[in-house]
Design a protein around this nucleic acid. Structure first.
Length: 189
DNA sequence: GTTGAGCGTT
């Protein structure tokens, strides 16, 4: 509350003020302006936070549904050539229908491609069409097209989920014993 | 200076 320092600004104000309202009034005005500015900033921050929150909640709501829905729309492509690109895969599976996304999985640590990919279609019906491309020749190799399933292979395919508490969670097996960091996966589109 | 089973996320 000292009139000597306005605080925020280092700008020196010239004393030549045609304003006859008095210095006190001017100071009050300035404080009011500063306050308004602060309020505005706070409002902006609040809005930003609110938006972020809404987005998070929205994503949270969609996550479960989409996660399961995406699995129904996606197919697993195995035996993919290491030099294959998502565009080629997309070109290959485009004949089945509209492709939402093509993702080639690569090892995040070594960077080497794992040799398989996912093709996410726009609708689950196209997955059946994609089955026609099963064991089709791609890069001189016969790719394997199977409906995607989220879990480690080798486990009995008898519906293991639904009984245990594994609902919506991964089976949490990472061969590195560490949490993956960075994004080394190659994504087309 | 690599090899062929593998199920990912924004």
């Amino acid at each position: 509350m000292s009139d000597t320092a306005n605080g925020s600004s280092t700008t020196k104000e010239p004393e030549t003020r045609p304003d006859v309202s008095g210095v006190d009034g001017d100071a009050t005005d300035k404080e009011l302006e500063a306050m308004k500015a602060r309020v505005k900033e706070m409002e902006e921050e609040a809005a930003k936070l609110r938006e972020m929150q809404a987005q998070v909640e929205k994503e949270m709501n969609l996550t479960e549904e989409d996660k399961e829905a995406v699995d129904a729309r996606s197919v697993y492509v195995g035996n993919v050539d290491y030099s294959a690109t998502p565009e080629e895969l997309q070109a290959h599976f485009q004949s089945a229908g509209t492709i939402n996304r093509v993702t080639i999985l690569c090892d995040k640590w070594t960077g080497h491609p794992k040799g398989f990919a996912y093709v996410e279609f726009a609708e689950p019906d196209l997955v059946a069409n994609a089955m026609a491309l099963n064991e089709s020749l791609f890069h001189g190799r016969q790719i394997k097209v199977t409906p995607k399933r989220t879990n480690v292979p080798g486990m009995s395919r008898g519906r293991g989920r639904g009984r245990g508490g594994y609902r919506g969670g991964y089976y949490g097996y990472n061969p590195y014993g560490f949490r993956p960091r960075g994004r080394g996966r190659y994504r087309g589109y």
